[in-house]
Amino acid sequence: MQNFDVFAERMKKSLLAIVIAAVFLGSCQPKPNAGDLVKNMVVVTDYDNTVNFTQYASYYLPLDTLSYFNSSDTNPADTLAVDQSGTGYVGNITTRVNNNMLAAGYTKVGKKASPDLKVYVFIVENYNVYQTYNYYPYGYGYGYGFGYGYGYGGYGGYGYSSYSVSDQANLYIEIFDLKNKVNGKPKLIWYCNISDLVSSPDQTATTIVLKSIDQAFKQSSYLKK
């Protein structure tokens, strides 16, 4: 009987130790609240600093479509998202990009009116490999074969050693120079990457997405006529 009491006492102590250890370890790696993390989007812009953006006067931008690349799409050829009403997800995005281009002093013209610039808007979903990005001239980019991911150099001098990214979608806005082609190909002179669309609470592109587009142009003050 005494042995049982000793055993019971030890069990109680072991249980207590396990509970304390569980509390101790369980509370030692908290993370930010997921809802707080996606209240804003990450907006990255980059540009070719050899270019004088005041030399351009006009641009071409379709308002009713944007390109959409999804790795899980069963039909790889289907890369267009169409919004003929102009007030849906696509229309909201292209209209806001257009408004910012107009605000920057450029004039919107038709494709056949020899625009100086081409504004290309597209969404990429579910590509999770690192993107190699450069300013070598290439075509408009339809059917891009490269994957997308993240490897920004860092903020304020800090770097990053690892990234964990699951399902995500990025909105890209690119501006090509049609006026000064290199080897007959348009030259990419400005680039914007906005993420993440999947986890954002703004699933209709009416608030955070539009605010992020504005931010892209705001932080690109050189982008003006």
Binding site: M41, V42, D46, D48, Y152, G153, G154, Q219, S220
Partner: peptide, 10 residues
């Protein structure tokens, strides 16, 4: 945050 030609907002 701006580094070179790249700017990142978050």
């Amino acid at each position: 945050y701006t580094s070179g030609t790249q700017s990142t907002s978050t």
